[in-house]
């Protein structure tokens, strides 16, 4: 299939882009890496009147460091993030997750802003950013707002972004001393979305895990912070988390459904398997020191 027709504009500045966004609103689509948007156009799953290409906005492409966070411009490409020394040092979770996204040619183009704006329930980065407690900067003509990652994702392919807004920046708090990250997913095949995955970040000592954020993807409509599971884990010695309680908590936290790649039952089972892998990784990571 070929896309339905649309107009194309490539603003030279963020102001111009926001003005276009204000003018065209719901009748426009932001084009970042295009790795989801253009396939959707090609299959006529989606159409729009005006495509606003934000790839010319150099202000949105930097990866910068400040006192206690690193800021990723919305059009930072997967490849840039994967190879960034800043990311490796301060947000290793992102570096762990990116090789699991698509394939190299996709990662050359796809952007972090596109990934979160797309809000695919099977996507890796939204879950990672929730686990890291990232904040997103959303801009509209004349104003800006910050929103916590956890509040940004509102449904399957749905976010808090308004039609006149552009996601401009993602702030990720720097890794603090003693904090560790773990990332695991289970996919039918290496390339493509996972059936279930988990991003975890917390303070790991030889006794326990604290300040844990454990976020599942592929199970629910949005990245799912497993609050009950976290409290089970935080409440026990790291080596001694009772499996039955863990499983019961996961069953409360997650609400998987059936799709062509796997049933709800399968995804729930995977969540349990992955949770154990995360714990095992935390235990052994701590053992290394």
């Amino acid at each position: 299939m070929k896309p339905a027709p649309f107009d194309y504009v490539k603003p030279a500045s963020l102001e111009e882009a926001l003005e276009l966004r204000r003018r065209h609103g719901a009748e426009s689509a932001i084009l970042a890496g295009g790795q989801s948007l253009v396939p959707d156009f090609n299959q006529r799953l989606r159409s729009t009147e005006t495509v606003i290409d934000i790839n010319g906005l150099s202000a949105l492409s930097s990866i910068e460091e400040s006192q206690d966070m690193i800021s990723l411009g919305a059009i930072s490409r997967y490849r840039e993030i994967e190879t960034s020394a800043l990311v490796a040092e301060h947000a290793p979770l992102l570096k762990m997750a990116i090789p699991e996204i698509g394939s190299p040619a996709i990662r050359n183009r796809g952007t972090i802003g596109g990934s979160v704006s797309m809000a695919d329930p099977g996507a890796e980065l939204p879950a990672c950013l929730c686990a890291l407690g990232a904040n997103f900067e959303l801009a509209r003509a004349g104003s800006k707002r910050m929103i916590a990652a956890q509040n940004f994702f509102t449904g399957r392919y749905e976010t808090a972004l308004d039609n006149d807004e552009i996601l401009t920046r993602i702030d990720v708090p720097k890794n603090r001393v003693g904090f560790r990250s773990a990332f695991h997913e289970i996919a039918r095949r290496k390339t493509g979305y996972a059936m279930c995955g988990v991003a975890a970040h917390g303070k790991v000592t030889h006794q326990s895990v604290q300040n844990l954020k454990m976020v599942f993807f592929g199970t629910d409509d949005t990245p799912m912070l497993a609050v009950n599971t976290i409290s089970v884990i935080e409440g026990c010695a790291i080596n001694d988390v009772p499996p039955a309680e863990l499983d019961a908590a996961l069953s409360e936290d997650l609400h998987p459904s059936d799709d062509t790649h796997g049933s709800a039952k399968l995804r729930m089972h995977y969540a349990k398997v992955l949770t154990r892998r995360v714990l095992a990784q935390f235990v052994s990571a701590h053992g290394e020191e």
Binding site: R188, R189, K190
Partner: peptide
């Protein structure tokens, strides 16, 4: 669709 009908890839 090509993304939902799973063909074997090189790593499989």
């Amino acid at each position: 669709t090509m993304s939902n009908y799973l063909l074997p890839t090189m790593t499989d």
